[in-house]
Design a protein around this nucleic acid. Structure first.
Length: 214
DNA sequence: AACTCGGGGCA
DNA sequence: TGCCCAGAGTT
């Protein structure tokens, strides 16, 4: 797709979802890292509810590791996968203390070594906490990009490469959030609400049936 | 590439 | 009740 059209689409989405910058509330890179780890298969609304309470007392790796896995598990259980998540959060907090001087690392290479931190979480932390341009391709970004036709690919990595090629670098981080918001509100996986889609005129899913998602 | 982990919100 | 949700680790 024409790069000009891609930028147009993203600008429209940005105007449609002005609140979409970063839905996870955080006051430090560490808070964002933990919030993002919690957000796996769990909506941002619930994550924010949990972290609002959790961060009152436990908003640094040093304070976090004073909790046992069971104690932390109780506090985060409404985010699901609580055994894995509490274990990973504690292991990651210990690694940050012991191997990174208590600071969240700011490179992809170091971030994905942390237990429970994958490429998506790392991208979110890099772009939102450290201002390093990145596009995390989660299920929403993957689906919406393929449908619209702004980036096609059968793997998240392929879609990421296409997006980075088609979007100006200074729009990468915001675009990630716009695409997620659009995927949740309108371009849903099951029943996309094309009748209310602000970028329907540009959408290949609607206008080019032969290019329909695979 | 497929499978597993998981409670809560909503139809 | 059944389906779905800002993913990552293991096999």
């Amino acid at each position: 797709m024409n790069k000009q059209i891609v930028v147009t689409i993203l600008k429209i989405l940005g105007e449609t979802y002005p609140e979409a910058r970063c839905a996870l509330k955080f006051g430090s890179p560490y808070e964002l890292l933990v919030a993002t780890m919690l957000s796996a298969q769990c909506t941002d609304v619930r994550v924010n509810k949990v972290t609002n309470e959790l961060y009152r007392e436990f908003n640094t790796p040093e304070k976090m590791v004073s909790l046992t896995e069971e104690e932390l598990g109780k506090k985060i259980k409404s985010c699901g996968f609580f055994r894995n998540k509490s274990k990973h959060i504690l292991e990651t907090s210990r690694a940050i203390i012991e191997e990174h001087g208590g600071k969240v690392p700011d490179t992809m290479e170091e971030l994905i070594k942390l237990p429970g931190v994958g490429r998506k979480t790392a991208d979110v932390v890099l772009s939102n906490a450290f201002g390093i341009p990145a596009i995390a391709v989660d299920t929403h970004v993957f689906r919406v990009s393929n449908r619209l036709g702004i980036a096609r690919g059968n793997t998240p990595h392929k879609v990421e490469m296409e997006l980075m090629k088609n979007i100006p670098k200074n729009m990468w981080s915001d675009s990630h959030h716009y695409l997620i918001w659009h995927g949740r509100k309108i371009c849903k996986s099951r029943k996309p609400d094309c009748g209310h889609c602000p970028v329907a005129p540009y959408c290949e899913y609607l206008n080019c049936p032969e290019k329909n998602e695979k």
